[in-house]
């Protein structure tokens, strides 16, 4: 048992994780004729809590409860992974990335997210405004405008050979490249890194 926990606590390689994530596609189709997608849960949250008479949020969200239950499961899965099978070592990140991030003021590799950014202490600061408020807003607004996220378009959409999803995925990547290579440095300098 101890050996099992030690083995499972190691970070999993991509060729294990990727295929397992891909298996979610047929599992959801088989257990309930559901197409894999996660960002729609944010829409259902709006429809259930704050529809405000907006047509976009006026639909039978109760039928979509499975999606909300699914994301609650993701949260619990994250809790289990961290509580029982956490990797005790620092996260291994490419040396070139470490050098680039050091230039931005990020050097703490003790957990999955850099402690310089993702703490409650940063909440009411310019750093928090950029990474939590602006970042979250862009994710929510962008995924809904695009009609899906990495799961709905990149994985489910491309898997089912739908070219609009390939277009969406290309622009997800393009946005990420532009942020990382052109905007992240100046923005981080602006908020005090």
């Amino acid at each position: 048992m101890e050996q099992f926990i030690e083995w499972i606590s190691q970070p999993w390689p991509w060729y294990i994780a990727g295929p397992l994530i891909g298996l979610t596609v047929p599992i959801l189709l088989l257990i309930g004729n559901k197409s894999f997608g996660i960002s729609s849960s944010l829409r259902h949250a709006c429809a259930a809590c704050i529809p405000a008479g907006i047509p976009f949020f006026t639909y039978n969200w109760r039928k979509e409860m499975w999606n909300i239950v699914f994301v609650i499961g993701i949260l619990i899965g994250g809790f289990i992974a961290t509580t029982f099978f956490a990797n005790p070592d620092v996260i291994v990140v490419a040396a070139s990335t470490q050098a680039d991030l050091a230039a931005l003021g990020i050097t703490d590799y003790s957990s999955l997210l850099p402690a310089e950014i993702f703490t409650w202490d940063n909440l009411f600061t310019a750093k928090g405004l950029l990474f939590f408020v602006v970042g979250g807003f862009l994710v929510g607004f962008g995924t809904r405008y695009a009609g899906g996220c990495t799961s709905g378009h990149a994985i489910m959409g491309i898997s089912s050979l739908q070219w609009p999803s390939l277009v969406a995925t290309i622009f997800f990547m393009l946005g990420g490249f532009v942020m990382t290579h052109f905007l992240l440095g100046p923005l981080m300098a602006l908020v005090g890194f």
């Binding site: 996660i38 960002s39 849960s41 944010l42 994301v71 993701i74 997210l113 950029l130 990474f131 939590f132 602006v134 970042g135 979250g136 807003f137 862009l138 994710v139 929510g140 607004f141 962008g142 995924t143 809904r144 405008y145 695009a146 009609g147 996220c149 990495t150 799961s151 378009h153 277009v167 969406a168 995925t169 290309i170 622009f171 997800f172 990547m173 393009l174 946005g175 990420g176 490249f177 532009v178 942020m179 990382t180 905007l183 992240l184």
Partner: peptide, 18 residues
């Protein structure tokens, strides 16, 4: 357009919705 906007947010937050 939305895809590009999400990409910007993805690189900031380091996370897609899942």
């Amino acid at each position: 357009i939305g895809g590009f906007i999400f990409g910007l947010g993805w690189a900031l937050t380091g996370a897609c919705p899942g």
